[in-house]
Computed example of a mutant assay.
Amino acid sequence: MPRRDYEDNPHAPKPDALVPAASVVVVDADGRVLLQRRTDNGMWALPGGVMELGESIAGCAVRETFEETGVRVEVTGIVGTYTNPGHVLAYDDGEVRQEFSICLLARPLGGEPRPSDESFEVAWFTPEESDGLPMVASIRKRLTDWRTGAYPVVR
């Protein structure tokens, strides 16, 4: 379902939901990060998604990463929490969410990168290669926080 990201935009629609989600910075032994080009907005992003009832945030991260990229991971840490009330996600079905995401750090355990119904492409990139990829500001912020070691507790 296509979506539009609004970040600190006074013309953004008002949110009607607050949904907990995980995003994941997966880093391989060569220091490359796993990214996917999303089908809902065409932008490059970290794997991740909505937490389900009965699931931990780490379990959500592992499940979503595998579903979206084909790569099995182990969570090893946290990059930060991202709860900017000015970041709103508007979906074509009318749902408008305020962002609430915990970004986790993980390492790959196996599997091969492959697209899914949520991604056009999945690939490994060096941090420098990711600089030129189109992505929404909130994902760029998470990658920057990981690269600089900022590890924010609250955003």
Rank of each mutant, 00 (worst) to 15 (best):
Thr83Met: 11
Pro15Trp: 14
Met51Tyr: 05
Asp16Val: 02
Gly42Gln: 07
Gln98Ser: 09
Val25Ser: 00
Gly54His: 08
Leu35Arg: 01
Gln36Gly: 15
Arg3Thr: 13
Val24Leu: 07
Arg37Thr: 09
Thr69Arg: 06
Gly54Val: 08
Ala22Met: 05
Arg155Glu: 15
Asp30Gln: 15
Pro152Leu: 04
Arg114Ser: 06
Thr148Ile: 07
Ala21His: 04
Glu55Thr: 05
Leu143His: 12
Gly86Asn: 07
Val24His: 05
Arg97Phe: 01
Gly49Pro: 03
Pro10Phe: 10
Asp93Ala: 01
Pro13Cys: 13
Val25Asn: 01
Val136Cys: 09
Glu128Pro: 07
Asp5Tyr: 12
Gly80Thr: 05
Arg37Cys: 09
Pro85Gln: 02
Arg114Gln: 06
Thr144Gln: 10
Val19Glu: 12
Arg4Phe: 09
Arg32Lys: 13
Pro2His: 13
Glu128Arg: 14
Val33Ser: 03
Leu35Lys: 05
Val136Arg: 05
Met135Tyr: 02
Ala150Val: 10
Leu105Ser: 13
Val62Thr: 09
Glu67Trp: 13
Tyr82Gln: 05
Leu35His: 08
Cys103Ile: 15
Pro113Gln: 05
Val71Gly: 05
Pro47Ile: 02
Val75Lys: 01
Gln36Tyr: 12
Pro2Thr: 13
Arg63Lys: 01
Glu68Lys: 15
Arg114Pro: 01
Leu34Cys: 04
Asp145Asn: 07
Thr126Leu: 01
Arg38Phe: 10
Tyr151Leu: 11
Arg37His: 06
Thr69Gln: 08
Val26Met: 03
Pro15Ile: 09
Gln36Thr: 09
Val154Phe: 13
Gln36Met: 15
Thr39Leu: 05
Tyr151Glu: 10
Leu53Gly: 13
Gly49Leu: 03
Gly94Phe: 06
Ala61Gln: 00
Tyr151Val: 10
Glu64Asp: 12
Pro47Ser: 06
Leu109Tyr: 01
Ser101Cys: 14
Leu104Cys: 09
Met51Ala: 15
Ser116Met: 06
Pro115Asp: 07
Asn9Gly: 11
Arg147His: 04
Val153Ile: 12
Pro108Asp: 11
Phe66Ile: 01
Tyr82Ala: 08
Arg3Pro: 03
Gly149Arg: 11
Val27Ile: 07
Glu121Ser: 13
Arg107Pro: 04
Val33Lys: 01
Arg97Ser: 10
Tyr82Thr: 05
Pro20Arg: 00
Phe100Met: 14
Ile57Thr: 08
Leu89Gly: 13
Ile102Thr: 15
Val33Tyr: 02
Ala17Pro: 02
Arg114Val: 00
Ala61Ile: 00
Arg97His: 12
Leu18Cys: 08
Ile102Pro: 12
Pro15Arg: 07
Val153Thr: 14
His87Met: 07
Pro13Phe: 13
Asp5Pro: 11
Ala137Ile: 08
Asp8Met: 03
Asp30Asn: 13
Tyr82Glu: 09
Lys14Asn: 09
Tyr91Ala: 08
Pro134Lys: 06
Leu35Tyr: 10
Glu52Ile: 14
Arg72Ile: 01
Tyr91Gln: 03
Phe120Asp: 07
Gly86Phe: 03
Glu55Val: 02
Gly110Asn: 04
Ile139Met: 11
Asp28His: 14
Gly59His: 01
Leu105Val: 10
Gly48Val: 01
Leu46Ser: 04
Met43Pro: 12
Thr69Val: 12
Asp145Phe: 00
Arg114Asn: 00
Thr81Val: 05
Tyr91Met: 10
Arg32Trp: 06
Arg140Pro: 03
Glu121Tyr: 11
